[in-house]
Design a protein around this nucleic acid. Structure first.
Lengths: 134, 134
DNA sequence: TTAAAAAGTGTTATAATATAACATATCATA
DNA sequence: TATGATATGTTATATTATAACACTTTTTAA
């Protein structure tokens, strides 16, 4: 079965729905707090749902913030690489398409005699909206 | 006073010495365990030393591994950006020089109308040594 | 179709990572 | 030498994440 049409369980769908509604990345315990009304009571239920969603590429983890965000790309079927623009002012996160970047990193890696497999990139700065507000 | 000649305190020097001896990145509690014989007894003492060492650019954090590594570059005076090659086989980490990468990311950011400030890049793959061992 | 395998659930407990708060000490420097 | 900044030692606690186990549901394939 294609990953993109994979059927989610209730817990997985509940967590994904919340992340897709959110403008910012959410922390696991913030997710837990928000969905307790839907019968999810324990951290493990959240972490297990997140693990699966990450595995199928619907959710990404932002490592430097211990936060999770729904993938913005339609039909994303991969959890391998992630690239983000993170606004230091408003915490909004934008996901970069990764094809060019992956190719660039693969090239850079070759120079170090290193076989590229995947990457996480977190770029910090000021987003469009916050630049304009100044 | 130039950052590169900044005098370290005993705790800071003890933590830095350990990280510089290590082939791999170390976790905070692993550092604590290793230096308890030197009078450091509590996690906070380690975290405070790490905070300072990171601030002056002598140590970097590898976010996806919650681990810390001594900077390989002489006279590194900045904690802003980091770029690593991380071997999935042996856990060795190589730090990439960041100038080219920073310029590249700054350019990529402009396209998204985003003002680049700094980045963390973690590239996973197989290092030279592990490729050869196969 | 049904038995076996795989995946998911609910729950309690606990591990691993990191910071708060506060009293005291050290050090640079004016 | 006092004063302000930085660091220290300590206890307690917050935050993030996983282990273990019994049970249920779904998928697969004989």
């Amino acid at each position: 079965m294609a990953l993109t049409s994979e059927k989610l369980t209730n817990n997985q769908q509940t967590v994904l729905d919340l992340l897709e509604k959110s403008k910012e990345p959410l922390k696991a315990y913030a997710i837990l707090f928000d969905i307790q009304k839907k019968g999810i009571k324990a951290p493990l239920q959240v972490y297990r749902a997140l693990d699966k969603l990450i595995e199928i590429g619907k959710v990404h983890k932002i490592e430097s913030k211990n936060s999770y965000i729904a993938c913005e790309h339609k039909n994303c079927d991969s959890s391998t690489s992630t690239s983000f623009l993170i606004c230091e002012t408003c915490d909004q996160v934008t996901e970069l398409k990764k094809k060019n970047l992956s190719e660039y990193f693969a090239k850079q890696s070759v120079q170090a005699n290193f076989k590229y497999s995947k990457h996480n990139l977190e770029i910090y700065g000021v987003c469009k909206d916050c630049k304009n507000k100044k």
